[in-house]
Design a protein around this nucleic acid. Structure first.
Length: 794
DNA sequence: GAGTTTGAAACT
DNA sequence: CAGTTTCAAACTC
């Protein structure tokens, strides 16, 4: 199933793949219907799974070379639906369905991007999270109403009753089986809630056969697991779907130097808490899945499977790792199918690696809500995502925003082969919905990304796609949309639907494949346009489970810094802000509140701007890519892509781009007299000074805040008491003269303390005490005056 | 705030 | 690709 060709993905800026998980992952092709493993030496995060072409069979390939445990739960209940849940050190899940549900959950990796994504390919509903550690909201998959709700895992049943590798269906619909490592079965189950026919059902894809699960273990043993028929008479897509086969095959890694890192390493008890951690490299994390109903459990002990990274989105990639571990605990995930009219919104958030990640699921109530999809890719910092974007029924646009990157990537997905869709060729959307940009407040940053309407997408790609449009949002304020447009001839007729700032440029060595570079700030400007942001949309409640974002380093800056820090205004005078000299332009942004002269970096000069962008890309196809990328293996995770060329600054001033990015110079730098290396005493001195200065600033700020709070508190407590009349005193009573007199009293008290050589604390106490006395006198006088006034009035 | 320094970007 | 120029940010006073 080729949603996006590997070639195209390889052309994506590295920031998309700039995760430890997916970097350096060679592309390998396998049969479309086969889940394959992508060998990687640094693969730590499963990035994406796609629906198998026919979804008739699903293969889970185990890498014999993988030594670390991982988990994958895979279930397919339909002819063209696939549910994959994989787990690495955390618990990645992937559930995909070409015709209906596509769900992918992937937890963040401690070392790099971790993504949890839930996608409904039909509705375009996608939920993903970086660093999933704790799921606080139920997780329900509904092919009919496009709802996915994460439920808390109830592993008690898994522990006690069902033996591993047993698939059973209790209740109406059981979709998900688990292939967890021994003792940690992942349970995906469907609730008794009935389901309504989904989109795929409307398209005539209903096949009410009894689902069967064929589980092939790593050792070649296979089982065909018939699923108990649904107790409900309602025909749902899930019920109609039938899993043909689940295969788990061993696979020798292509490269011995490509160990799979994203592996489940945690043992989860019945409450979803991590009991043990099997992987020394992975920090312990907690995953909690709220679990309203626990019905059926399936687990395959000894199997540890991880989903391959996004590098090969065209394939469902699952890595199975043998893991003869003990049955100490179980990990289960309940996946009840919930039927509702509303579309699904799922907000997942990752906290720091040291704290449990919480996943909040926000589900729209019912009506008038378009399908939305939110996909987040966690960066090395483990930043979060919270973006909900409406999707067309047949989405073929993927937006990816990578934390740490200033870019938003929009992948225009086109179906190249009929088999890739998993559905009959040709447009099969039962309904077309015009996507509207929606924005969910992400704390410091909000983003609104208009998505090409579904009609337009269909023109670009007449064949429906199995992967839903995805929007990956980070908390970066500086954003850019880069749309890998492939193939260009197909996209070309729809350029009118792209933002005016979009510039299509060929990717290096990509032939007719290129990028559409769209300044993300265009979105900001468009927020004043007819596009409606989610925040302003009354019909689309914002997720409530969004948590405070993690504060992990990101390009030298914490997430909070990158999100809250306003962009510096440029001061360009001669470049018209259309050259890379201009930071705004270089960041793909429009100038806004800048001090530039003769600025052309705005919507009013789109023609010139597009031309300039194209010029820059012609000169350097990677001109708009972040300069700070991932270093080679064994080196620092971040390094300058080109290296600096400093000659006089010693690379210890902000002239140096490496130093400015708070990274050390690397071997590719051509600097002279570099002092920006690990053991440099000058660098250490600077670091210490900077740290000390920062501490001082923080202390001063804290002191000011405390004093202000004390004064405010004193005012609040004394005013009502002394106001003899019971009412509030007039503020105008504190005149300038009164203030001056008060200050004199305070100064006198300070002098007194100084003369008596009082310690600072005592001096502060004396001053505050005097200030309190002054206030008392002021308030007393005011109260007296008020009383006098009242008596006069009487 | 003005002037200087610096190195990336742009140009040749 | 190397050398030069341009440019705007960083830095100093």
């Amino acid at each position: 199933m080729d949603v996006v060709s590997p070639e195209l993905n390889s052309l994506l800026p590295d920031e998309i793949m700039d995760t430890e998980a997916i970097e350096d992952v060679p592309h390998s092709q396998t049969d479309v219907a086969t889940v394959k493993e992508e060998p990687s030496d640094d693969t730590s995060v499963p990035m994406e799974t796609d629906t198998p072409v026919a979804a008739e069979s699903l293969s889970l390939c185990s890498d014999a070379a993988v030594t670390e445990p991982s988990q994958v739960v895979t279930t397919s209940t339909g002819t063209d639906s696939t549910l994959c849940i994989s787990s690495e050190s955390q618990i990645p899940f992937s559930i995909s369905s070409s015709s209906s549900p596509l769900l992918t959950l992937k937890p963040a990796m401690a070392t790099s991007t971790a993504t949890t994504k839930t996608t409904d390919s039909v509705t375009g509903t996608t939920v993903s999270t970086s660093g999933l550690q704790k799921l606080t909201a139920p997780f329900t998959i509904s092919p009919a109403n496009h709802q996915i709700i994460l439920n808390k895992v109830a592993t008690e049943a898994a522990k006690s009753g069902t033996p591993p590798q047993v698939i059973k269906q209790e209740g109406q619909k059981l979709l998900v089986t688990t292939i967890g490592k021994s003792g940690q079965p992942i349970v995906l189950q469907l609730p008794h809630t009935g389901g309504k026919p989904g989109v795929s059902q409307a398209s005539g894809d209903v096949k009410p056969q009894t689902p069967q699960f064929k589980v092939v273990t790593i050792d070649g043993r296979s089982e065909l697991k018939p699923v108990v028929g649904s107790a409900s008479n309602q025909v749902t897509t899930l019920q109609a779907q039938q899993l043909k086969a689940v295969q788990i095959a061993k696979k020798t890694p292509v490269s011995s130097a490509a160990p799979i890192k994203f592996i489940i390493t945690k043992t989860v008890n019945s409450k979803g808490r991590v009991l043990t951690q099997n992987s020394p490299v992975m920090p312990q994390r907690t995953i909690t899945l709220s679990e309203p109903h626990s019905m059926s459990i399936q687990s395959i002990p000894g199997k540890k499977i991880a989903i391959s990274p996004l590098k090969s989105p065209s394939k469902v990639t699952v890595v199975s790792v043998a893991s003869p571990t003990s049955n100490t605990s179980q990990k289960s995930v309940a996946l009840p199918v919930n039927v509702a009219l509303g579309q699904q919104i799922l907000a997942v958030q990752q906290s720091t690696s040291a704290s449990p990640v919480k996943v909040a699921t926000s589900q729209t109530t019912t009506q008038n809500i378009k399908p939305v999809q939110s996909v987040a890719v966690g960066g090395v910092s483990g930043s979060q995502f919270k973006t909900i974007i409406p999707l067309a029924t047949q989405p073929n646009v993927q937006q990816i925003q990578v934390p740490g990157s200033r870019f938003h990537y929009v992948r225009l997905v086109t179906a190249t082969t009929a088999s890739s869709t998993g559905q009959p060729s040709g447009p099969s959307t039962s309904s077309i919905q015009t996507a509207k940009p929606m924005v969910v407040s992400t704390g410091a940053v909000r983003m609104s990304v208009p998505i090409v309407p579904a009609q337009t997408i269909k023109q670009v790609a007449p064949k429906p796609l199995t992967s839903a449009a995805q929007v990956v949002t980070t908390t970066q304020t500086q954003q850019r949309l880069i749309m890998p447009a492939t193939p260009l001839p197909q996209i070309q007729p729809n350029f009118t639907n792209l933002p005016p700032g979009t510039v299509l440029a060929p990717a290096p060595g990509a032939g007719n494949v290129g990028y559409a570079v769209v300044p993300a700030q265009y979105v900001t400007q468009l927020q004043q346009s007819p596009f409606v942001t989610l925040a302003s949309s009354s019909s689309f409640p914002a997720p409530t489970g969004i948590q405070t974002q993690a504060r992990l380093p990101l390009n030298g800056l914490t997430t909070a810094e990158t999100t809250s820090r306003p962009r510096k205004p440029c001061n360009c005078t001669k470049s018209q802000c259309l050259k890379l000299y201009c930071d705004c332009f270089a960041n793909g942004e429009f100038c806004n509140n800048c001090n530039c002269n003769n600025c052309f970096n705005n919507l009013e000069h789109e023609t010139e701007r597009q031309k300039a962008i194209k010029t820059c890309l012609d000169r350097n196809p990677e001109a708009f890519k972040p300069k700070i990328g991932k270093g080679k293996e064994g080196e620092s995770d971040r390094r300058h892509s080109k290296g600096c060329n400093c000659k006089r600054s010693g690379c210890l001033k902000n002239y140096c781009e490496c130093y400015e990015a708070k990274i050390m110079c690397s071997s590719i730098c051509k600097c002279i007299g570099c002092k920006n290396f690990e053991e440099s005493p000058e660098r250490k001195t600077l670091m210490h000074l900077a740290d000390a200065a920062e501490v001082r600033v923080q202390q001063q700020t804290a002191a000011k805040t405390k004093l202000s709070s004390q004064i405010s508190d004193l005012l609040m407590r004394t005013a009502p008491v002394i106001s003899s009349g019971g009412g509030r005193l007039p503020y105008t009573f504190v005149t300038k003269e009164v203030l001056e007199a008060t200050c004199e009293c305070l100064l006198e008290q300070a002098k007194k303390a100084e003369h008596t050589h009082q310690p600072q604390a005592e001096a502060e106490r004396m001053i505050l005490e005097e200030f309190g006395h002054c206030l008392m006198r002021i308030i007393s006088s005011a109260g007296k005056a008020k009383a006098d006034c009242a008596s006069i009035n009487c």
